[in-house]
C-alpha cells in the first residue's frame, strides 16, 4: 500500500529531482572544468532509464507476513547439514 500511495507523488518528485540534479550538474561541471581541466573520462555515469514502478504484485505478497508464512517452504537438506568439519 505504501508503495502504491506514493506512486503519483513520485512522478513529480522524480521530475523535480531530475531537474534540480541537472541544474546542479551543469553548474558544478562548469566550475569543475574551469578549475580542473581533465583530458580523460574517469568513470561512467549512472543509468537514468528507470521505468515507473509497476511490480505491485510482488510487493503485495512479499510484504505480507501471513501470506509468506503460508507459502514459504523449508529448503531441502542444505549442504552444510551434510558436510562435516570446519568449512
Amino acid at each position: 500500500m505504501v508503495f502504491r500511495e506514493r506512486g503519483n507523488k513520485l512522478k513529480h518528485r522524480f521530475t523535480g529531482i531530475a531537474l534540480f540534479s541537472l541544474g546542479a550538474l551543469l553548474v558544478s561541471a562548469g566550475i569543475g572544468m574551469l578549475l580542473f581541466p581533465v583530458t580523460g573520462v574517469v568513470s561512467g555515469s549512472p543509468s537514468q532509464d528507470i521505468p515507473p514502478f509497476t511490480d505491485y504484485a510482488c510487493l503485495d505478497c512479499h510484504t505480507d507476513e501471513g501470506r509468506l508464512k503460508e507459502l514459504a517452504v523449508k529448503p531441502e537438506e542444505p549442504e552444510e547439514a551434510l558436510s562435516s568439519g570446519p568449512g
Partner: peptide
C-alpha cells in the same frame, strides 16, 4: 525462518 528470508519490510524498504 524461510518466510523471513524473503520478507520485505514495507516501512524500511519504502
Amino acid at each position: 525462518e524461510p518466510w523471513e528470508r524473503v520478507w520485505i519490510d514495507a516501512e524500511a524498504f519504502g
